[in-house]
Amino acid sequence: MRAWHYLIILLLAVSAPFILPDYRTQLAFLWLMVILALSWDIMGGQMGYNSFGNIIFFGIGMYVCAVFQRDSGLEYFQGLLLGMGLGGLAAVIIALIIGNALLGMRGHYFAIGTLGLSVVAGELAGGWDYIGAGSGLTPPLYPGEISERNVFFYFLFFVWAGITFVSLWWVYRGRFGLAINAIRDNEDKAEAMGIYTTRYKVSAWTLSALFLGVIGGGVGNLIGFIDPKDVAFSGATFGVWMILMAILGGKGSLWGPVIGAIIFHVTQELFWTLFLGWQRVALGLLIVLIVVFFPEGILGWLRQRYPHRMRDANNSTEKNKLNK
């Protein structure tokens, strides 16, 4: 990727809501999907820790932000932005607490543990009256026109997706990226080389929590209604989508999750209604098919198909390091 590639993407992204004014919400969700896929990939792709539980940070951010907006009495924009920040903070704190206990486990145990975590979060939120229990929570209304509101959220999500992407690009090319890749390849060897693996694992998990926790508040406001099991801690939608998108695009790379998110979201918007209520059945089937027959994802497939053209993209970061 050259500089002008990025420039074109940037221009397209900025003009998209004005070229396609009818699809602003869907476009905003496109950036959300990118954030979801990228933040799952930190754990699942780069570090090889299959997490079913990242969705909890999304839900925590959503609830913290909405409760803050409800109880602080601040004006809408201040409340929203501060609330999103607080949501991210809460997600980070919780990630630190449970990360230390949970990330000592590996493989099956970690995966099932996080699966349990996501269900617990939904169940607890559904029983807690302060946050609306099972009947959910309604964030305050946007003070303005619907079309203006959609543009606002579009750019909010776009900016956070950009920050997520750039931050990940930056941390992956340094020691952190190498260390979590090393953990993926052989954790025992990483420990034998003196790497404090738990520190890196908790950092990766916390980073993932930060990106999800912040955006959760925005999503709650855009959807306009927070349901504990179907929106905030929804294992059957966002929770599964993030895994599916990352694997579809190619886990363990920076562009893979982005590509996967775009393809998945566009296909979903175009064809999902054709399934007439059978979407979630199709989703289960889709996971099985992708994981079993296409585990390397689109990027991995391209790399096998055109090893020479794609190798450049692989090694470019390394060459940069060498030239310094």
Partner: peptide, 28 residues
Amino acid sequence: YRVVDRDVFISLLATFGISIFLAQLTNQ
């Protein structure tokens, strides 16, 4: 049978997919 000797990651996600598929199918 396609996931038996492959890594944990694939077998976990594949059976997770089957789990969603069966639950949602029954729901329908």
